[in-house]
Computed example of a mutant assay.
Amino acid sequence: MKPLLKICGITHNIAGVAELQPDYLGFIFYDKSPRFFEGEISSLPLGIKKVGVFVDEKVSKIIELCIKYSLDVIQLHGNETKEYVLDLQGYLTLYCPDVLIWKVFSVDDNFDFGQLSVFEKKVDAFLFDTKGTEKGGNGYTFNWEILKNYPSKKPFILSGGIGLQEIDSLKELLKTNLPIHAIDVNSRFETEPGMKDVSALKVFIEILKHD
């Protein structure tokens, strides 16, 4: 089964990107990000789910934005704890039922997969991004060889510096039995932060679709 596609960090050409029919569009609600989103989201084509990206945000603020934007997924990109996730789950059940939670982990060569265990039964998927100076959008991949040590069957989203140059290595990775739920692209498909290169994205989607 081919992985789904998430296009993250959009602030400008939402409609143009939505025409490509990705499975997920990601909106970053972190005011220190160059891709911080605070606009309006016009109605999207059916089938596209909205992911809200948060970094150590107050639960009340997440719920407020979840309701405002009718989010489908909450992506936690900070140092959120198990207790934080349980608290968030409780409020989502009340105000935003059926919304999923993805927990992000920043990966480098020394990453310890043991830290996933406390979240194993508390989130719907993991997301692995490159450990760098920024909370996402660093523009380079981590060493995917480390994923051979992935100890879980829980689906995960592969993120971090994925662009057209990574197509061949990405295809090889997708031949493995790893439970890759989606590919997450961001900074490598931009003309400026938040403005996506639709032409390059089209090429990427076509190559993945027809392999």
Rank of each mutant, 00 (worst) to 15 (best):
T176G: 06
I74H: 13
Y69M: 04
F54C: 09
K32L: 11
T11R: 03
V51S: 02
E38N: 12
L65K: 15
K196Q: 03
P151L: 06
S199T: 15
D108K: 03
D31E: 06
L173P: 02
K135A: 08
F189G: 01
N138D: 10
P193W: 09
P34F: 12
D109W: 10
Y24K: 01
L88Q: 11
T176D: 05
K61L: 11
S199I: 15
H210I: 13
P155E: 03
D197P: 00
Q165W: 13
K103G: 01
N177H: 13
N13M: 02
G9Q: 01
Y84P: 00
F128Q: 00
D112N: 10
D23H: 15
V73I: 15
K154E: 01
G16K: 12
L71K: 07
A125N: 05
I48M: 04
K121N: 15
S199R: 12
F204L: 02
R35A: 01
M195Q: 08
W144P: 00
Y24T: 02
V73T: 10
D211T: 13
K135E: 04
K209M: 13
S106T: 15
V85H: 11
S43C: 07
Y84K: 02
L100Y: 13
T191K: 07
G52L: 05
N149M: 14
S42L: 13
S187A: 06
L173N: 09
Y69V: 01
V17I: 11
V104R: 00
V53K: 00
K153P: 04
L127M: 14
I205Q: 10
K135I: 11
N149L: 15
K196I: 03
D31H: 10
L76K: 06
V99Y: 12
S152C: 12
H77S: 03
H210G: 02
D109E: 14
H77P: 00
C8N: 04
I74Y: 12
L94H: 12
I167T: 06
T11P: 00
L208D: 07
P34A: 11
F54Q: 08
K122D: 07
N138Y: 10
L94Q: 12
D184R: 06
L5F: 08
A15Y: 12
T176A: 02
E206P: 02
S159K: 05
M195K: 12
S60R: 14
L170A: 02
S187F: 07
W144V: 03
I146W: 12
E40M: 09
E120K: 14
K2R: 13
P97Y: 09
L44R: 07
I74N: 08
Y69D: 07
I162V: 13
